[in-house]
Simulated scan of single mutants.
Amino acid sequence: MTTSHGRRATIRDVALAAGVSISTASNALNGQGRTNAETRDRVKHIAEKIGFRPNALARGLLSRRSHSIGMITNDTYGRLTLPMTAGVSEALVDHGVSVFLCATNNDPRLARLHLEALLDKQVDGIIFTATRLDLAPQVDLSRLPIPVVYAFAEGPDTSVSFVPDDHQGARLAVEHLLSLGHRRILHITGPEDFAAVRRRAAAYRASLGGEGEVMFGPWGEDWGHEAVHRILTRPEPRPDAIFCGSDETARGVIDALRDHGLSVPSDIAVVGFDNWHVVAAQTRPALTTIDMGLKELGRRAGLAMLDLTQGKPVASGINYIACELVVRASCGTDLAGQSLMSS
């Protein structure tokens, strides 16, 4: 990134090497003016050859953009946010836009500090994401002078939001079990005050013609163990399949069934929800589950943000991202490892 004299290459060096004026070299590198394609390509080739990098601050002053956005999340461990961030970055990196990721730990004070820091950096926009769809930001984002996009979160009616299609994902899970001949399908899921839980439960019941039993409880493997103990110690016929609201709960269910001498999938088939790979792929048997398409969700949010920062129109409202059924061994099919998507 330096010239033969050991100093950093400048726009003047590029112009001299290309045999053009400084203004022409600048226009060629910034895609401005009426520079012809041949000159533009030559200038860019020379700039790359001598290691010239445009000054980001100066470029920002010219375009009135910082070519960066902020992501604010309460997801401390990154299980949801990291794949979404990868999708956002994938959408923006070729446009020279960087992403600042800020975790709030559900602390309103920390959220305010992160927001102030991002505004001080003059980011072009902010993407808010959370660990549940119905969680409001810990800081007011409604009056910012820059665009705000919500990812895995539902913003105000006038905002742009991207969320997994929980109804469609739950239908995929139940329809898969029905296609395998299962009829007594139980739904073990998370707390009823979660919007996603209620939507999945509603889709589960609809897929069974309004029938079915839903067991709400805390997220996690312990609830899977407890729920299995309850159903196996009551007089009703046991289910022949269980649709779980999370992969962690599903792993607890499978372990508990094994503890009671039951085999998965021979005695009871199990489907999860999340496709959290570190859980789903390592469960024994490996877990059939619903993938929420988090990377694609992030990519779509990133593209929407790019359009907004460039002044292009983006329709407000909630955009639902289709889920996929990832078939592994816990349902006993011959499709292990395949992904299926349905409208």
Rank of each mutant, 00 (worst) to 15 (best):
S4K: 14
R79S: 11
V278R: 14
V326C: 10
T73P: 08
H5E: 15
G19Q: 04
L325C: 13
A170C: 01
I188H: 03
E175K: 15
A111T: 08
A173H: 05
W223T: 13
G96R: 01
D240P: 07
D240N: 07
R328H: 02
A17K: 13
M1E: 14
K312R: 10
S263W: 03
R234P: 11
T333Y: 04
A9T: 14
M84Q: 13
V271C: 12
L325V: 13
W219E: 11
V149F: 03
L118Y: 04
A281C: 15
I268T: 09
A304T: 12
V270C: 03
S246D: 08
S159N: 07
R234A: 13
F273H: 07
R132A: 12
P191Q: 08
R7N: 08
L61P: 00
T3N: 04
R300H: 07
E324T: 09
S161P: 06
V278I: 15
A153C: 11
V197M: 00
G6C: 04
S68H: 05
A28L: 00
R40Q: 09
A196P: 08
A241Y: 04
E324W: 06
A91S: 15
F128N: 05
I46S: 01
R251V: 11
A25S: 10
E296W: 14
H114I: 04
A103P: 15
G60T: 03
F128R: 03
H225S: 12
L180G: 07
H225V: 14
T309S: 01
L101M: 12
S66C: 06
R234L: 12
F216H: 13
L92G: 10
Y77R: 14
G302P: 11
G31T: 02
G169W: 03
I46W: 00
V197T: 09
V278E: 15
T309Y: 03
P156L: 08
L141E: 05
A86I: 15
R200Q: 03
I268Q: 00
Q168M: 12
L178M: 09
A58P: 04
R234M: 09
L141T: 01
T24C: 02
H187R: 11
D247K: 06
T3A: 09
D193P: 15
V148S: 01
A336D: 10
V14H: 02
A195P: 11
T289W: 03
M305F: 06
E221F: 06
A9P: 10
L110C: 08
A250H: 01
R238Y: 00
K49Y: 08
N55P: 04
D222M: 12
S26M: 02
F152H: 13
I50H: 05
G220W: 07
K49W: 09
R184S: 05
L92I: 12
G169D: 00
Y77Q: 15
L303W: 11
D75Q: 05
M84D: 09
Q282G: 13
A17H: 13
D222Y: 02
S330A: 13
G311E: 02
A103R: 15
L287A: 00
G96A: 01
L294E: 12
A227Y: 01
H95T: 09
D13Y: 05
R8G: 02
T131Y: 05
N74G: 11
